[in-house]
Design a protein around this nucleic acid. Structure first.
Lengths: 156, 156
DNA sequence: TCCGATTAGATCGGATACGATTTATTTTCT
DNA sequence: AGAAAATAAATCGTATCCGATCTAATCGGA
């Protein structure tokens, strides 16, 4: 019954890569959210950005980027699109014209109140493990950023 | 000691979103791999594709796509790039000219043998949990695909 | 057999990620 | 005060993802 030691057992097949599990789970989340988000005309990333913005009004682009692990090169186009769609407003901070402050509009806030992802809690099939997995994966992320060059610019 | 019920406690702040944990962990993996992959001139997705190809020679694009949860619209450009770089070869199947067969070159196989991700096992900080998390996240992915519209076209 | 349906890849357009650079503003240092 | 350094956001080019469409090859039924 024990399998012989073929190439696949050397630890290099896909299922042995944690990075692939995370990569593909992320794709799966994107697809699971798609039908829900299509109804409100949002993409997955746009939705996540709105959730982060619901924390607090008048956040700057970099503060938001810190929560989302993204920078202005990625965020600026997304925020401009969300402004066009009417879910948020952007304006330069009069006290420091370099910064752009972002706030949800009532429409944006209303959208977040709907808790679109709730139905996916069941679809995850994790049951009581749900919060544990959440914390574990978050810890994994933080460890990776801390223990690799990925977080180096922060340390300087 | 108990916090009062503010907006953040209603379950909609970022840290309560499993999808965000997965999303950001995936970003973190991409950044952790980046310095390693830069040395061999590969991107994160290209590397994952090579790992999947190391399973077996002469895979078709759709067979590879099934492993990676991707389709030809995403894979074709990546595979063409990897062919240019010299890590794989593509050729039409003479028995069915619709299909393209893909195999690693010796250079591609040599690259995979190096086990580039090994050092990240420690950086993940998961210790003995590593294989458990791997399985749990894979299960999460499979459940999401099965329990949502995301996997619907497969059922028809 | 032959024509419509199916299948496998490829192509195209829109939306992220991200390194590198640019612009505008503010801070710092003398 | 004034020039250099630092900072915040935006811009640009490359590489994914993905829906929709296209093309070429194969299959299937009357």
């Amino acid at each position: 019954m024990a399998r012989s030691l073929k190439a696949a057992d050397k630890g290099r097949n896909l299922s042995n890569f944690l990075c692939f599990a995370v990569y593909s789970a992320n794709l799966a989340f994107g697809r699971a959210y798609k039908p829900l988000l299509d109804k409100v005309g949002l993409t997955y990333t746009q939705y996540i950005a709105l959730v982060a913005l619901s924390d607090e009004d008048e956040q700057t682009v970099s503060a938001l980027g810190e929560k989302l692990f993204l920078e202005s090169n990625t965020l600026t186009p997304i925020l401009k699109k969300l402004e066009q769609t009417g879910y948020l407003k952007r304006h330069r901070d009069p006290a420091d014209e370099r910064q752009v402050r972002i706030s949800l509009t009532p429409a944006g806030r209303k959208l977040i109140e709907q808790d679109l992802g709730e139905s996916l809690r069941e679809a995850s099939g994790l049951g009581d493990e749900f919060p544990v997995v959440q914390k574990t994966v978050s810890r994994l992320r933080d460890n990776l950023l801390r223990n690799t060059q990925a977080g180096d610019e922060k340390k300087r």
